[in-house]
Design a protein around this nucleic acid. Structure first.
Length: 778
DNA sequence: GATTATATGGTTTTT
DNA sequence: CCATATAATC
């Protein structure tokens, strides 16, 4: 049991606590995952608790996978496979799938992602003949979502006086009606949205005592990660599940609560102690992650929030360096500064790409970082934003698969009934939807009996062909695995062929995405699963679809280059750590965000977010802000973030001008003077606020003027040993061009290239990277 | 009914 | 700036 030796005192007491409720307040970097995994291990190894009886819920698949892996490693056997470790959503989806009939749902129900759900909301709003300017689908969806997260159903919503008042004041009193129609539509479609996975789980446990007792008996030990981010629905479910054994262990940090917009409430932490007679409380306050400087600044920031659970984070780690604070002129300069600095740090301190993370408040900020990194040839990966499964071509393909599994899935049907174009247009579809609503049948039901509904002969034929095709797929459902069936779908619908024939760059990318999708389906069918007795642990399409919607692109790193700089929002970075962290965009209106400065609660959440960002860093931390940045396509001036003023000056190093150019008197100043002369505002700002400050970081002028060229996404250096005159090439900086002549010795070949943007250049092939565009020369 | 041109409006964060 | 929605045209 030597795993216990690696723990400090409070950690060990948390692990050794076996029965009864326990709450662990775990500061940033205090080893909370270690405690959770060790506790699971200990329950199994020392107390002989059956792995089937342990439930651990996390917020991300990644966290779940990591926990499982760590338990497995310590245990040294495959017992960990039987643990129920997963996200709230995926674990509940799995349970709901088994129990769906109780709720009147088919067990192959579809899971609607946010896009699908909003589209249903929109359709419902139109059908109710409401104005979508007044009832913006986004707004309505958010209200429905938060109602569900508070366990308020349509009927309760319409009877809730406060909610009705609120909606009436906003001139949106029909939201309850929309909610009702939306819920009914989802039910008819055999679909649940993300929030339903929680809401229906709650209803299952509340309304079906035998189901409740079944899962209460099964989950003798329950562990909850990131407890500060649970919402009412999650809280009530945990309470129900844990009521029999009361072996509930929650781990959280009130200082890192950043999901209140999703209904999370810190109240759950305070409430937890009141729910049980005696709750053991453990505080983990030793930080093993960051330097003293970084931790000090983090503590300093968070101290500005009122009403926290008292704790004092400390570390035995080194002092470390001061925190770098860099001002740049624009968001593009900020990107360049970060890229330059990464380059420099790699050389100076021997970091790899994977040691760096660039964090930001909003997804839109990734652009300038991305461009700068690409220009410097630094490998990177953006997490979040548009995920793979949200891309149009991928969603279209998946819509076919969804329809095959669940023909009542109207969203899927609408998506592909005329894709690729097969002469079933808007009029036809609208008519079908109308019939469907009138008769309370599914749209699929209408079109598969189209002859009864008075369609014209031509339309009827198109519909029949479509229905026949889908039915053909369905007949293969039980005979073929997910991959084989997907291949048939791809072939019969012509999707793959059509994309293949599209030779534009985007078309190529789309084709590759669909291929990647097929690969992932193949991988799914070939990977053995750890399904439990009796459950539908099959390799069919239904099983595949069930998991896919709950994946985010942060979850699959497989097959990707592991040595990359990581870019993500601060929200997405929660729970992660990196040797070197850049936090960009520390400006008023951006961070804190303009949407979140109206109440103390909102502002404090922004501050916690900043706290989370800082505490991701292990060794070095850069904070940056730009005088001006593009927003909505327009240059916008911003003041530096108020949070920066909360850091004491002696922990900051403002001298850092970024990358190779430490400019205290050279280029930067000159450029600064120029920009002052140009922009009155920036001048004023500098004169008032930044007298003492270093010049803003700007791109050095010393390099020859090169017309901007952003390398292609797929830029890879080609083998140029046989390069010949006449071939077309791409250079990372100079852009596209044609080789005019070859010269130089064999060991040092030189190509003269005529570039479209930058004229004739001599390129030494031993050093330059060229991508050959057409390898064949006539 | 399909394809193309123009308008509009939206960025906070996510399972 | 970008993506999607609507209008205009074939």
């Amino acid at each position: 049991m030597n795993y216990l030796d690696e723990l400090n005192e409070p950690q060990r007491s948390a692990v050794l606590h076996k029965d009864g409720p326990i709450m662990i307040i775990a500061g940033a970097g205090s080893g909370k995952t270690k405690v959770l995994t060790t506790r699971i291990t200990h329950l199994m190894a020392a107390h002989k608790i059956d792995s089937f009886n342990i439930l651990a819920l996390t917020f991300t698949n990644k966290a779940a996978a990591e926990m499982k892996e760590r338990v497995e490693r310590v245990l040294g056997n495959t017992e960990a496979r039987n643990l129920y470790i997963g996200t709230f959503h995926s674990v509940f989806a799995r349970i709901l799938r088994a129990e769906a009939p109780k709720l009147g749902y088919p067990s192959n129900f579809t899971i609607y992602d946010t896009d699908d759900a909003k589209s249903v909301v929109k359709a419902v709003i139109n059908e109710l003949a409401l104005d979508d300017k007044q009832y913006k689908p986004n707004v309505v969806y958010n209200r429905i979502s938060s109602a569900k997260n508070s366990l308020i159903g349509p009927a309760e919503y319409m009877n809730d006086w406060a909610l009705q008042q609120e909606d009436a004041r906003a001139n949106r009193s029909a939201i309850g009606q929309i909610y009702d129609a939306y819920a009914k539509r989802c039910f008819k479609n055999g679909a649940m949205d993300f929030d339903d996975l929680l809401f229906k789980m709650y209803l299952l446990l509340r309304n079906f005592p035998e189901a409740l007792s079944k899962y209460q008996r099964k989950f003798r030990y329950i562990m909850i990660d990131e407890y500060q981010d649970t919402n009412t629905a999650q809280y009530e479910i945990i309470k129900l599940l844990g009521a029999m054994h009361e072996n509930v262990c929650v781990v959280g940090d009130d200082a890192q609560s950043i999901y209140s917009f999703r209904g999370a409430t810190i109240e759950n932490i305070l409430q937890f102690q009141k729910d049980y007679e005696e709750v053991k409380l453990v505080k983990l306050e030793q930080n093993y992650r960051s330097t003293k400087n970084i931790l000090h600044v983090a503590n300093e920031i968070i101290a500005n929030n009122k009403g926290q659970i008292e704790k004092k984070l400390f570390t035995d780690n080194d002092e470390g360096e001061k925190i770098n604070l860099v001002r740049t002129m624009t968001d593009n300069d900020e990107g360049k500064m970060v890229a330059d600095t990464i380059q420099e740090q790699k050389l100076r301190n021997h970091y790899y790409n994977k040691d760096f993370a660039i964090l930001y408040r909003t997804n839109a900020q990734s652009r300038s970082f991305e461009e700068a990194l690409r220009r410097m040839g630094i490998a990177y990966r953006i997490y979040g934003g548009m995920s793979f499964y949200m891309r149009k071509e991928v969603k279209d393909f998946i819509a076919y698969l969804r329809l095959v599994v669940n023909p009542n899935d109207e969203e899927a049907l609408k998506r592909i009934i005329n894709f690729p174009a097969r002469g079933i247009g808007k009029t036809t579809v609208d008519k079908a939807i109308l019939f469907a609503n009138e008769s309370n049948l599914s749209m699929w039901n209408i079109i598969s009996n189209a002859s009864r509904y008075g369609y014209k002969a031509g339309t009827l034929e198109s519909l029949d062909n479509f229905v026949t095709m889908i039915k053909m797929f369905q007949s293969e459902l039980t005979k073929k695995n997910a991959y084989d069936l997907a291949v048939i779908v791809g072939k019969s619908t012509n999707i793959v062929k059509e994309l293949f024939n599209d030779k534009t760059t985007e078309g190529l990318a789309r084709y590759e995405n669909v291929q990647e999708l097929l690969n992932s389906i193949k991988e799914f069918t070939e990977t053995p699963m750890n399904e439990e007795d009796g459950e539908v642990g099959d390799k069919g399409l239904g099983a595949y679809l069930q998991q896919i919607t709950l994946l985010t692109d942060a979850d699959d790193d497989k097959g990707q280059n592991p040595d990359v700089v990581k870019l993500m929002t601060i929200h997405a970075a929660k729970g992660l750590e990196f040797p070197v962290v850049f936090v960009g965009g520390l400006e008023e209106t951006l961070f804190p965000n303009a949407m979140s400065i109206n109440t103390r609660e909102e502002l404090e959440e922004e501050r916690r977010l900043f706290y989370v960002a800082i505490t991701r860093a292990k060794q070095r931390l850069w904070l940056s802000f730009a005088n001006a940045r593009y927003r909505f396509g327009q240059l916008q001036q911003n003041d530096p973030s108020r949070f920066l003023e909360e850091i004491s000056e002696n922990y900051l190093d403002r001298s850092y001008a970024g990358g190779a150019i430490k400019s205290s008197g050279g280029m930067g100043n000159a450029l600064d003077r120029i920009s002052r002369a140009f922009g009155e505002n920036s001048y004023k700002q500098q004169a008032t606020n930044y007298k003492k400050e270093r010049p803003a970081y700007t791109t050095p002028l010393s390099r020859p003027q090169v017309k901007e060229h952003i390398p292609s996404v797929d830029f890879v250096a080609s083998d140029t040993s046989n390069l010949q005159a006449g071939q077309k090439v791409e250079h990372q900086k100079f852009g596209f061009g044609e080789v005019i002549k070859m010269e130089g010795a064999a060991h040092n070949p030189i190509a003269t290239v005529q570039f479209e943007l930058n004229g004739e250049k001599k390129i030494m092939l031993n050093y330059a990277k060229l991508r050959i565009i057409d390898p064949t020369v006539e």
